[in-house]
Design a protein around this nucleic acid. Structure first.
Length: 313
RNA sequence: CGCGGGUUGGAGCAGUGGUCAACUCGUCGGGCUCAUAACCCGAAGAUCGGAGGUUCGAGUCCUUCACCCGCAA
């Protein structure tokens, strides 16, 4: 079976490598064009491109696959195409090319969390489980008929990076299983229940700004969803201040000490730091101030940059 | 050559020309304590990212290199 793989980030690399390791014939990959990344002067390839080059797979890149890629893909004549966080919308003309159709790997249990950043969104919303879905790639985003799903529990303190890694592996397993079904002619597709569908836009940098009037648990979930990227942040004495690890404070003593604090006000001990929120107290565990590396709060506190009474935000 | 911050004992930091190598923590030794991430006493440990320069004299000014990080893409 001739496979054409369309993907861009690390998540897609995991799937691609699973496909290769199971002996499938990947005749090419399509990925986003090389982007200029400046600080460090490295113009970098997408992770999928780097991986494909390493494996000696043909790489195709288009600013717009709909406009520039159709002829190429017809010539490649794949039996099946697989999309995975590709980053471009595909046209019907392209969807009609491969005889086994076009499959997509999506990191959520569809029809929930359609759209970009499903992993982050799950965490932000405090979901307890998530998973991956293999479905037909359709014109409407993430709306195609489902072939199979795999579910996993979200760990209580897991952040997006960690969950991402686990789902990437799961996605690889799922797509290999899906290809097996296709080959055996046992693939059965089930339409999604549109009534249960939820859709979220891509998260942006600014969405990571912490609103200290929210509850501690919501802030905690947001922080997990935004870590390691684009990160949950606030401001400390005018400087960007990221929080990469935290937890909801359970200590009655601390909560009592801070009962008259305003939202965003900090309470610092020798090795621990807390912030008052709209509901409850958030304990900071790992932070990063602009220009510095991320560090444990205890180390950060040694530097004397955060004192009780300081207002974050 | 997109903009900016940073590189000082194991960690976090102070220190902008002349006892300048400080502080908090950690480490080691001792003490106190039922006990402790608490407290007390003492000790080890840095030639201040690399190279060059200015100067009577530089961590502190200049040039350059390397690495780290934030922003923007």
């Amino acid at each position: 079976m001739r496979i054409l793989f369309l993907g861009t980030p690390d998540f897609a690399v995991s799937a691609l490598s699973a496909i290769l390791e199971n002996g499938y014939d990947v005749v090419g990959v399509v990925t986003q064009p090389d982007r200029k990344r400046n600080r460090g002067e490295a113009t970098s390839f997408s992770p999928v491109k780097s991986y494909a080059l390493q494996k000696g797979i043909e790489v195709y890149q288009y600013e717009s696959i709909k406009k520039e890629g159709v002829e190429d893909i017809k010539n490649i004549a794949p039996d099946v195409m697989i999309t995975c966080a590709f980053g471009q919308i595909i046209s019907q003309e392209i969807l009609d090319i491969p005889k086994y159709g076009v499959l997509n790997i999506h990191a959520s249990l569809l029809p929930k969390y359609r759209g970009s950043s499903p992993i982050q969104r799950c965490l932000i919303n405090g979901e307890k489980t998530t998973g991956v879905t293999i479905m037909k790639t359709a014109l409407a985003v993430d709306s195609g008929d489902i072939l199979l799903q795999k579910e996993i529990d979200i760990l209580p303190e897991e952040n997006a990076g960690e969950l991402f890694d686990r789902l990437a592996i799961l996605g690889g397993e799922a797509i290999v299983e899906a290809l097996g079904l296709l080959e055996k002619g046992e693939a059965k597709f089930t339409p999604q229940d549109e009534k249960l569908a939820t859709h979220y836009p891509m998260i942006s940098k600014e969405d990571g700004r912490i609103d200290w009037s929210a509850s501690a648990i919501d802030i905690f979930n947001k922080m997990r969803g935004f870590t390691p990227w684009p990160s949950a942040f606030t401001y400390l004495t005018g400087k960007l201040f990221k929080i990469s690890r935290s937890r909801v404070c359970k200590s009655e003593d601390i909560i009592d000490v801070m009962k008259d604090f305003v939202c965003g006000e900090a309470y610092a001990e020798k090795t621990r730091a807390f912030v008052k929120t709209g509901e409850g107290v958030l304990e900071l565990l790992e932070v990063q101030i602009e220009g510095k590396k991320a560090m444990d709060v205890s180390a950060f506190l040694q530097g004397g940059k955060l004192k009780s009474g300081e207002i974050l935000g």
